[in-house]
Amino acid sequence: MAADESSQWLFTEDEVLSAPSIIDGLSPTEERCRRAKGVNFILQAGIMLKLPQLTLATAAVFFQRFYMRKSMVPEKMGVHHYNIAATALFLATKTEENCRKTKEIVIAVAKVAQKNASLIIDDQSKEYWRWRDSILLYEEVMLELLTFDVVLQSPYTILYDQLQKLRIEYIKPLRNVAWAFLNDSSLTTLCLLMPAKDIAIGAIYFAAKFLNDTIPDDENGNPWWELLGGEPDKIVRAVGILAEFWSDNPLKRTENPYGEAASSGDDLDRTRGRSEGASSMALSSPDAPSMNGVEPKNEQVSTPTKRKNENGEEEGLVEEPASKRQKSEDHSQ
C-alpha cells in the first residue's frame, strides 16, 4: 500500500502546529518559513541536477514528513533544514529511480548552500566531505523516522488520470496551471494535511478558477468533482492553504500568484459547465496539444529563472509562479 494511503502520514492542522520544532520553541511562522526554505533548497539543487519534477516532489514529501518526527532546532538536538533537504533529495533519486552519482548530488547541494552556482567543489575540498558525510549520516536517520515507508502516491500521476477521466487532458492551459499548483504546493504542508487525490482535485479547481474556465458535468448532470470522488470542503481548503502560504510569503517573493485565490463553495460551483460539450477553454483552444502519450511521471522541470526577494537578493534558480508562467505562455502563443 502506498504511503499516502496510510493515516500515519495524515495530520490535523492542530497536529501540524504541534510539530517537534514548534514544541522546541520555534514560532509556527518561523517553522513554516524553514520548511519552505528547505523545499526551495531541494528545488534549486534538483534543477541543477536536471531531475524530473516528480523526484523533487517526492523529496519534498520526505522532508515534510521527517519534521513531523524530528526537530529542526539544533540547540534542542534537532537537524538543520538544509541538511535534511539534501538527504531527502538523495533518497528520492533512489526511490524514484532517477539516480545521480553521489558526487554530483554533493556538489549540487554544496553550490546551492553557498548560493554560488559557479563555485568550484571537488572531492578534495572540506565542503565536499562535510556535505557527503552529512547526507550519508542522515539518510539512515531519515529512513528510520519514515519507517522505511518511501513508496508514495503522487498527485502528479493522479492529476493526469483525473484529467483523462474528465476528458480534458488535452487542454494545455488548464493542465499547465494545475501542474504549477502541484509544484507550488510542495512548499507547504499540504501533503501532511490531505491525500494526494484531494490535492490533485484541488489543482484542477484552481486551474479552472485561475483561467475563468468551466469543466463539464458528467452525463448524469453531477458536478465534475463528484466523478473524481472529491469533497467540496477539501477542494476549497487545498486552495485556501496555498493562498494563506503566499499571503504570509515566508520566502519573501515579490509575486503572489494566489493573491486573488479566495475560495468558497459557491466559487467552486462556478467552475461547473452545466451544458453538454467541452469546456470553454477547449472550444477556444482546438489546437492545444496533448501530452503525446507521455505520462506526468516523465515530465521534466520547467525552465528555471532567477528570482529575487524583497531585499533584492538572488535566491537562486527557481520556477516561475503559476500566474506569471501562464501569462508568459499566453504571450508566446
Rank of each mutant, 00 (worst) to 15 (best):
R32N: 09
L43V: 08
A238W: 01
G316Q: 02
V177S: 07
G38F: 02
K234N: 10
G38W: 00
Y160I: 08
R100H: 10
K103G: 11
F62N: 01
L159D: 05
D184C: 02
I23W: 05
G273I: 04
G273C: 06
N311H: 14
L89P: 03
L242H: 05
P52I: 00
R167D: 13
E310A: 03
N212S: 09
G78V: 03
L268I: 03
Q8E: 12
S332A: 14
E139M: 05
E313I: 12
A208F: 00
S6N: 14
S71Q: 04
S71W: 03
P155G: 09
L211I: 02
K101P: 06
G38N: 01
S302A: 14
S71H: 00
F11V: 04
A196W: 05
Y160H: 15
Q8M: 13
N309F: 04
W246E: 01
I84R: 04
L49E: 06
S263P: 02
L211A: 00
Y205P: 01
A117M: 13
N212R: 14
D14G: 09
S71F: 03
A207C: 08
T58P: 10
A57T: 04
Q114D: 08
K234S: 09
P223F: 00
S328N: 11
P74T: 07
E313M: 12
T147R: 11
P20S: 08
M77N: 10
L137H: 11
G293I: 07
E276V: 12
P304H: 04
L51F: 11
L49H: 06
A85W: 08
G230Q: 06
L10R: 10
K70D: 01
A261S: 12
I22P: 01
V150A: 09
L227M: 15
V109A: 04
W129I: 08
